[in-house]
Design a protein around this nucleic acid. Structure first.
Length: 259
DNA sequence: TTGATTGTTACCGG
DNA sequence: TCCGGTAACAATCA
């Protein structure tokens, strides 16, 4: 379900719901990853997103760390509590609302030290003001890996997932198989700026939108080529390849393999 | 029942 | 050390 925009949107929303209040955190199925106990009635002092990781900070330097993985979902409802839908692994109960989290790959309680370690291994996050794009440029330019792989590597740049990868590379006319070291600085700056702009739209609209043609026109879809057959640019056939275990789409004509 | 899916990590081999 | 490939884990739906 999530790319970076989903997590940042949740962080902003949950900040309003939980910060300053005592929140009950429990795992209805008793399944925190590291076996830690629930957090009970501790004041929530911050909710932050780092890439696709969601961190709730409580008093006494306790952190609830959530990663939704491929299938995770977040449901937010007004109190009173309703019966859990599906397999709820984490439930947060605040003053006015409760939040159920289904299917995360990670749901664990961290201390300050392990939280710092986590943040250290996450690359610059497109949606954070403190992100340093130079770290992204340097990693890519010195790498022999494909740009299609690097964009999905969250230690290189945080927030991009499989759909944005395809759409970004198409918008910038870059073939996913081009190696990082073969790209130039301006291409990387364009990638960074476009990625950030697209993710910000995603946060605002709660939807991945990479095609901004007016509704009513022939190509009014919100995506350009992801899972599509025809390139809206040249009307050519869209190709598929697997890169880092996920399917990437590209246009042979618009995205040249030689940079 | 099978396959696909907006993700990540550990481990191994080259 | 870097890079690619594979398996494991998570949950739901068509």
């Amino acid at each position: 379900m999530p790319e970076g925009h989903t997590i940042h949107r949740a962080a902003r929303d949950h900040q309003k719901l939980f910060v300053g209040y005592k929140v009950d955190v429990s795992s209805p199925q008793g399944r925190f990853n590291n076996g830690a106990k629930s957090i009970s009635k501790l004041e929530c002092v911050a909710v932050e997103a780092y890439g696709k990781h969601l961190l709730y900070e409580f008093k006494n330097d306790q952190f609830l760390h959530i990663h939704l993985g491929l299938f995770g979902r977040i449901r937010r409802r007004k109190l009173p509590i309703e019966e859990a839908k599906g397999k709820v692994r984490v439930r947060l109960v605040g003053k006015t609302h409760f939040v159920d989290i289904n299917g995360p790959t990670i749901c664990e309680i961290l201390d300050e030290e392990s939280k710092s370690k986590l943040i250290d291994r996450i690359g610059p996050d497109l949606l954070r003001k403190d992100a340093d794009p130079n770290k992204f440029f340097e990693r890519v330019i010195s790498s022999r890996a494909k740009i299609g792989t690097l964009l999905m590597d969250q230690s290189v740049v945080a927030g991009i997932g499989n759909i944005y990868r395809t759409e970004l590379l198409w918008r910038q006319k870059i073939h996913p198989n081009i190696l990082g070291k073969d790209l130039d600085r301006s291409q990387l700056e364009n990638l960074w700026n476009d990625a950030r702009a697209l993710l910000e739209v995603g946060v605002k609209r709660n939807k991945i939108i990479t095609n901004f043609k007016k509704a009513g026109s022939v190509n009014a879809d919100s995506l350009n080529i992801y899972k599509k057959k025809k390139c809206p640019g040249c009307m050519g056939v869209i190709s598929k390849i697997e890169i880092s275990g996920r399917v990437a789409y590209f246009c042979v004509y618009c995205q040249s393999e030689t940079s």
